[in-house]
């Protein structure tokens, strides 16, 4: 019983494939339309995903630099160190004494010793703080707290950049969502029309089949398979388009990234993302066909 059922489905599957191949140009065109429609949101999604990975590289845990006044003594330093240790928002911190900072500067500047002319050390003592939480609000709050402490000259952190980037990323995500909804609707519309035309050309077959005892699901099946298969092939086309686009722009993006001293390696969609895209494309094709069949099949009543 089940094997007969499977055999029937297999038969419809093969039959549908043959039907797709029998009108190669039409099939190819609608598959390409679906592919392009999918590649747009998916491509932007990849772009955002990669931007996020860059922002992760630079600002995932923003560091706060704390510069003390030049006349701060050992006692002040100990006091600040103790307060930092007590603050639960701080994950870890590192103390860089003015002497260590000067030593570092001498080492970094190489053969030209720009410090040799100095009569005294102009650098302040500093703490470099890693926070537990990178949310801009937390950082702002922490800044306010530290500012009230004595012997603090300057606090510096790069939250504004993080805020801007995360705002852009949020906008991008919204854009991907909007594009996905719009283009999915377009795909359903394309499939609706394709199936409508097919039903019209298969009118006789549908009529006769109904007359000799075909159930509705038997009549629908080839159309639903057709929609799902076109969706699937459209999804595969989208993956190819994306892979080609990444390949074509990879070098340029790398150069751009190097100008910003970022280590960029374009990440492709994960296997999970790929599979979900294919599944979604198949489902959309099926859905378009399903709506079309529901709308047009009942109009064909046996005469």
């Amino acid at each position: 019983m089940i094997s007969a059922w499977l055999a029937q489905h297999w038969h419809v599957f093969v039959f549908t494939l043959k039907r797709l191949v029998s009108t190669p140009l039409t099939s190819l065109l609608s598959i390409i339309v679906i592919g392009i429609a999918f590649s747009l949101p998916a491509g932007i999604y990849i772009l955002i995903d990669n931007l996020q990975s860059i922002s992760g590289q630079t600002v995932s845990s923003p560091q706060i630099s704390l510069f003390l006044k030049l006349d701060a003594n050992q006692n002040d330093i100990e006091q600040i160190r103790q307060r930092l240790e007590e603050n639960p928002q701080i994950r870890q911190f590192q103390f860089i004494s003015k002497n260590a900072a000067l030593h570092q500067l001498q080492k970094n500047s190489g053969s030209v010793d720009i410090t040799s002319g100095l009569t005294h050390n102009p650098l302040p003592d500093a703490f470099i703080i890693d926070t537990n939480n990178s949310a801009p609000e937390t950082l702002g709050q922490l800044q306010a707290t530290i500012e009230d402490w004595p012997e603090i000259e300057h606090i510096q952190y790069d939250a504004t950049w993080a805020e801007r980037l995360s705002a852009i990323l949020r906008l991008g995500h919204r854009l991907v969502l909007m594009l996905s909804v719009l283009l999915s609707t377009a795909i359903i519309a394309v499939m609706f029309n394709t199936i409508r035309l097919q039903i019209l050309t298969k009118r006789e077959e549908i009529e006769v089949s109904k007359l000799i005892g075909a159930t509705n699901s038997f009549i629908q099946r080839p159309f639903l398979y057709f929609g799902a298969l076109q969706g699937l092939f459209g999804g595969i086309t989208a993956l190819c388009i994306i892979a080609l686009a990444i390949h074509a722009t990879n070098n340029e993006l790398m150069e751009l990234a190097q100008l910003y001293t970022l280590n960029l390696h374009i990440r492709h969609l994960s296997i999970n993302d790929n599979l979900s895209l294919l599944l979604f494309a198949t489902w959309l094709g099926w859905l378009g066909a399903r709506i079309s069949v529901a709308n047009h099949l009942w109009k064909i009543e046996s005469k």
Binding site: A4, A7, E204, V208, G213, F218
Partner: peptide
């Protein structure tokens, strides 16, 4: 009400397909 897009054999096959027989 014969179907002109298929052979005589396939026309006769149709009722059996509809009844769910493996062709």
């Amino acid at each position: 009400k014969l179907l002109f897009d298929r052979s005589a054999f396939d026309n006769v096959l149709l009722p059996l397909q509809i009844s769910g027989f493996d062709h």
